[in-house]
Design a protein around this nucleic acid. Structure first.
Lengths: 242, 242
DNA sequence: AAGTGGTCTAGACCACTAC
DNA sequence: TAGTGGTCTAGACCACTTA
């Protein structure tokens, strides 16, 4: 990442908060920070804005800026467990890379629904990639992904076994940072039970996602069935600005 | 809401996008918009930034700003179904107000966990409010909420039956726009099955939330068991700025 | 080379809170 | 009344894309 000023300020303030520097839970006012960091007040505001979005601080007009007490108590809650879930391919649990077993790999015509979601024409084809992901030798996710062949014409099963997102990054210098996600739950099917070692009263979490490249092109539609014990989506929700 | 310039611009651009005005999927450049709206370029950037956060447009440095094709195809995906779920109390489904059946209402000492989450001391008390929420006479959610008595010392069962958030708004001019949410799934318990009319293979969604007032004070901890057919959390995820 | 978005600045003025 | 965050401006300069 480039060396942006507001980013540096943001990280520094975060570090100072974690270091327990502001025992009153109150941050210095924006004009002082502007002075001490030798940057404009706008830049301070931008840095602070990121921390507000992350739920780490609260601003109160007229009184000042305050640290979310929970951030000091339990920083793990701020880790956005859901974030890693967003990018299925760069999944990590406790820093461990998942294994992947390829269940199916084929090229098929895009169904009307997939056409709409990936913005394809009638005659276009997609890879249909079905994988079982395992952590610690435990099967955790059944994932079915659809990717337009025109985006990755040279995709191979070998690449699919490792990381499609890395491959995209390397071959096209594009990353995937945006997605729509929806999450729900349902009883497990026979296939779910068999692949994920579930009993019939144990459910699966269903995550469906559309992933976009930096330029807005839809890159992949993905449907995931997760072992319910591994589904945990956590997020900070801010209803301002709506 | 006040009549902020960037907000007006944001809404106007959104309206123009929905109206199909930009058939090329490309928006005018920022300097032109600045000119035509007679506002500064910074204000345009701010308005556009909101739309980027909502997943409605994508910016591409050097080329321009483009509409997310999915926004035109399927605006419902952009509705953040999860948003309403965030504020359990102002829940709506198809614009319908939920009914609420009070299952339990008492004042108890805050457990260590609740103390931590609501930032309370050892000797403090909380309301423990257990409600069953129904839509269309269908039981949908079992909710157990914990609220510090010191925040709402005059709370009554009558208020609880209607809307606690409205009550907070009226009595203290505070709203609740921020929360931590976590979502998971699990098999239904006997109580779940009985109250939500589930069979034993049907699961519940579990949403846990900590809700904050505008000034950052934790207001409520809530644990919800949702009928799995009504759990659908959708959101736009942007992994920039991390 | 021209066009477009990104970053950053310096400062004016407003709105709210606390005293 | 003093202090604090919010909004908005006008403009400089940079980085990237496209031709």
């Amino acid at each position: 990442m480039p060396d942006l000023v507001y980013r540096n300020v943001m990280h520094d303030i975060k570090k100072r908060i974690r270091g327990g520097e502001f025992t009153t839970k109150k941050l210095p006012d924006e004009r002082s920070l502007s002075e001490s960091y030798q940057v404009s007040r706008s830049t301070i505001k931008r840095a602070m804005g990121v921390l507000v979005d992350q739920g780490i601080i609260f601003k109160k007009r007229g009184s000042g800026t305050f640290i979310n007490p929970l951030y000091l108590k339990d920083q793990s809650a701020f880790r956005y467990e859901g974030r890693n879930l967003g990018i299925t391919d760069s999944f990590q649990v406790n820093g461990e890379q998942p294994q992947s077993r390829l269940l199916d790999y084929r090229v098929v015509p895009a169904s009307p629904e997939i056409q709409q979601e990936l913005f394809l024409n009638d005659a276009e084809f997609v890879y249909r990639i079905k994988r079982l992901r395992l952590f610690d030798d435990q099967p955790v996710i059944i994932e079915t992904g659809y990717i337009p062949i025109k985006i990755l014409p040279a995709l191979t099963p070998a690449v699919v076994q490792s990381s499609i997102f890395n491959y995209l990054q390397e071959t096209q210098d594009q990353s995937v940072t945006k997605s729509f996600l929806s999450i729900r739950a349902q009883p497990s099917s026979h296939e779910d039970q068999k692949l994920l070692n579930l009993t019939e009263v144990e459910p699966v979490g269903v995550m469906e996602g559309i992933f976009f490249m930096d330029d807005g092109t839809p890159f992949e539609v993905s449907n995931m069935h997760l072992h319910y014990k591994y589904l945990k989506y956590g997020t900070f929700v801010n209803l301002d600005e709506d």
